[in-house]
Design a protein around this nucleic acid. Structure first.
Lengths: 255, 255
DNA sequence: CGCCAAGTTGAACACCATCAATATTTGTGG
DNA sequence: CCACAAATATTGATGGTGTTCAACTTGGCG
């Protein structure tokens, strides 16, 4: 669509930048929490490693907690491994979002995090971050805020899992992804799913086949255009209605 | 059972105390996070209000964030109200546990909290707590830790909701309640459910009827003795097996 | 004693999981 | 660049688990 072209330079810039103040993700990452004058201090503790290949891990379950990670480009999946060996996907993280906060609870990670595609990350050693946040109340507050948001996100998901039908769950996920793209000034109606159908099903508590069927149905009813992992939202209002039939419509984000 | 008698004095003491250092919940509440020498500072910011009646609210959804609350006795239910008007229970809080952390995300509460029975609470104004935690790194770390634990608890629940059968969900809830009783040195095999069947169903994503049926079944198989809200765990090992059939048994907490 | 809320039990149905077969995409090496 | 294998995705048929609707029982409290 028309706005896709405009977004390409943003992505490229984000990959190139080596400090927060010039990073394209600046407005959606950590920086809004700190004064401009303090930004260089934050900058100085951040490590920018080379990009991770698809399938490479940021950290593994039970590893000691060393850092939190800001996604710069690509996408990350967090999951836990259950006693029986099965996997439970606990979240997806897109550029500008912070991964690894789960470890604050017990000193070690309660989940693993893996790159879903080639992914660039900023590593923020927790010891440094904690020290810095002592000096900068705004940063400390932001940290707590991020954790609070994680809690709220999780509770939203609990709600989906315990009360919503397959269609409602998938429509909600698509709207969430759409909103997060919009936040980064990317096209909100056209995007690529970084995760497999199987990951989606796992995350939403559905069988792969059900995910597939729902996509097909949403396509047949003209709500979506689906081409593999490429998604186009054709009728956003209808999609909102599918996501929350109870809602009195028209409080549908963006159109 | 035999340990029930030993627990009564603990409960009574907890209600009477007016400072943390003498509170019976001391080992499971905030205090372990701070030096003994700093405990009086924590004490000084805590307000101990008169007990809440059953049905009274600690706070309502969308209310500005003013404080977090430590449950001293009784029990609290947290829930959100969905667009359609339905309720979604997000958690139960027992003595020694902290309620209200959800608001750290956005400055206002994303859920409501209500007393399930007569409940005594300690109110900890957040402004004071934040100020204090600036001065006491251990307290700050503990705050983050509590939030991290909340995240982990939520993720455990997501797991239950997305992958577990009705029996597994209820068995898991009972084991969780049992463990939390044990932590307070109360009988781990005999306790009273503070919440209704309907709350349980709502929390676990099940219909009330299903909850009822599962209780009946667990009773018929000799795993539980159920008398209204009074629960006795008769065969803990079996209950663990119901909760997690995949687990190779014998890593069942307590017996 | 009688009322209302909460809990239990039964029967029919719906939704989604599962199994199975086929199609499509992705990745790899010739 | 094509060919092949493997992984991922789609589609159909069937069945189980839990929901829904309904009737009935129990318990708390005026």
């Amino acid at each position: 669509m028309s706005d896709a072209a405009a977004t390409i330079p943003v992505v490229i810039r984000a990959l190139r930048e080596t400090n927060c103040s010039e990073c394209a993700l600046n407005p959606v990452c950590l920086p809004p929490a700190v004064d401009e004058t303090d930004l260089d201090q934050l900058d100085s503790i951040i490590e920018r490693n080379r990009p991770l290949q698809r399938g490479a891990h940021l950290y593994h379950e039970r590893q000691p907690f060393e850092a939190v990670y800001a996604v710069r480009s690509g996408a990350v999946k967090a999951y836990t491994t259950l006693p029986g060996g099965e996997e439970q996907v606990t979240g997806f993280y897109l550029p500008g979002e912070i991964v690894g906060l789960d470890a604050l609870g017990g000193g070690s990670h309660s989940s693993s995090a893996v790159a879903l595609e080639t992914t660039a990350i900023c590593t923020i050693p927790f010891a440094d971050l904690e020290r810095l946040s002592q000096k900068m109340p705004a940063l400390q507050r932001h940290l707590l805020k991020l954790m609070g948001q994680e809690i709220q996100t999780d509770q939203q998901l609990m709600l989906l899992l315990s009360k919503r039908s397959a269609e409602e769950r998938i429509a909600s996920l698509l709207l969430s992804l759409s909103a997060r793209h919009k936040r980064r000034r990317l096209a909100e109606n056209n995007f690529r799913l970084p995760m497999s159908r199987s990951d989606i099903g796992n995350y939403l508590g559905l069988a792969v086949e059900t995910v597939s069927r729902v996509f097909t149905r949403l396509q047949q009813t003209g709500v979506l255009a689906v081409d593999g992992k490429e998604i186009s939202i054709l009728d956003r209002e209808q999609l909102c209605h599918v996501a929350e039939p109870a809602t009195s419509a028209h409080d549908c984000p963006g159109a």
